[in-house]
Amino acid sequence: MEELIKILEDVRDDIDFETADNLIDSKILTSFDIIQLISTLDDEYDISIPASEIIPENFNNAKAIYALVKKLGG
């Protein structure tokens, strides 16, 4: 989880990912942040996030992102 937080902060250093919630629903992350994030996660964890998993529920907070990475075998 710590490693993930670091990756997230690399994409956006102005957000406290440990506590932030509703990242997508409250439009805190822009679509380009999400794309950068997906690409970085793909490479760092050697996973492949399919377009069908790119839904708000999977990216609303660090916990959800972590769960997605684990689900995809990262």
Binding site: V11, F32, I35, Q36, S39, T40, D42
Partner: peptide, 11 residues
Amino acid sequence: AKKGTLRLIFP
């Protein structure tokens, strides 16, 4: 270069 940025170029 950041990996995330490189992934944006072709799309």
